[in-house]
Design a protein around this nucleic acid. Structure first.
Lengths: 226, 226
DNA sequence: TATTGTGAACTACTTCACAGCA
DNA sequence: TGCTGTGAAGTAGTTCACAATA
């Protein structure tokens, strides 16, 4: 539940806005000018009532009997997501994953810009990734302030993550995306999104175990529901 | 809501089990033999009532007035998560991200094993990552069957993802972890978990925009609640 | 006495179903 | 006529608060 100005938007709705935006941009690329809640929902992987309800939290964008204009809805959602303002990222931890994240090409198109790479390992510091020099994490606070970093991506191992996160917050950053396998304890006004690849695999493993416990034999064979 | 044998476990609970397991393994590493719901919850980043309620869906593991035995709870959760059985993974798409995922070192400890890397790009096929040869995605079905692959990690670009996912499913795989920025349409009995880095950043951007709309001036300054 | 396990209350989210409107 | 926008109903998830008990 997130307050923005007068209105309140459910967190679950916010988490789906990126899907809608992605689908709308695909439509633009295909040269489609108008769409409906059912088409857009289908492309986004949600139900059409869900989509209409989600949009209703932000305002009223469609035309009854007709649908939505792709361009205007797309710009509206992009604006709601705060794209358009420039978001300056620092990536802390330039191992396998940090390296891959630095090289990810989708940032620019979406209003994000990587302005610093930091690591603690002397073997990595001084090197380059994606054309950016890797600097020592000791200078984290200075770099955040000088380069107006507004979001930090944590791609460090678990143990140093809490300490680095605290330093990041003390330097003024309030939005953190963490890939570190630990629960971060930070002030309530800091927003942390965590991505845990090992955890996702474990969730899949739970489903696989449930499937077997419920007695599915061969691939392709299905258990009749209830 | 997931049925397993007699009992029903909320999906939200399943998604937290990996956090509990991680915290328990940290405790083991620290040589702690016994813990309480409040300590374990704190380490997992959830409330203690939440943790107790979650465990109650799986059974009754603690001792009133005392707490939980770390080792036995840890093994129980690992078993519930289907670790212990071996899970054989194929990674499709060996770009930056696929490469990083192949090199991720956390698999073995958790019962996962990468047994194939696949890509469509002739420049990548034949190369190696993490000591495994990259094979052509044309052979996907054969490789899945021959090597008993039970889970697939999709790290391809968006456009080919749907087609590859369908082939993966037709070869018998029912658990997919996707990093591709598209909604996959697959039969209901297939479990798909999606990770969308760009989407996560957009969600953070929404929070940043909300913060500014609600009038926060300088870093460190807080808006009083309500 | 301290801490678990759990009904009950509450909150959040989703889906339905239809009135409203171009 | 067809599709949006939205109250109302239904479902899922969280938190409370306390009885059970080692």
């Amino acid at each position: 539940m997130i307050e923005i100005g007068e209105v309140t938007v459910p967190a679950a709705t916010v988490a789906r806005l990126p899907f809608y935006l992605r689908a709308l941009r695909d439509l633009t690329r295909e040269g489609v000018a108008t769409t409906s809640s059912s088409d857009l929902a289908e492309r986004s992987g949600v139900g059409s009532a869900q989509l209409r309800k989600d949009l209703s939290y932000l305002g009223s964008f469609g035309t009854r009997g007709v649908g939505y204009e792709v361009e205007s809805l797309s710009s509206y959602i992009a604006a709601a997501l705060g794209l358009g303002s420039e978001h300056r990222l620092a990536i802390v931890g330039v191992g396998n994953l940090g390296h891959a994240l630095a090289n990810y090409s989708g940032y620019a198109a979406r209003g994000f810009q990587v302005v610093a790479l930091l690591d603690a390992d002397p073997a990595v510091v001084g090197g380059r990734a994606a054309g950016i020099e890797v600097e020592h994490v000791d200078h984290l606070e200075r770099i955040i302030v000088e380069r107006h970093v507004s979001m930090v991506v944590l791609a460090t191992p678990g143990p140093p993550a809490q300490g680095i996160a605290e330093r990041v917050v003390s330097a003024g950053v309030r939005e953190i995306l963490s890939f570190a396998p630990v629960a971060l304890h930070l002030p309530d006004d800091v927003v942390v999104r965590s991505v845990d690849v090992a955890g996702e695999l474990q969730i899949l493993a739970f489903h696989a175990a449930a499937r077997h416990a419920n007695g599915v034999a061969a691939p392709g064979a299905d258990v009749p529901a209830s």
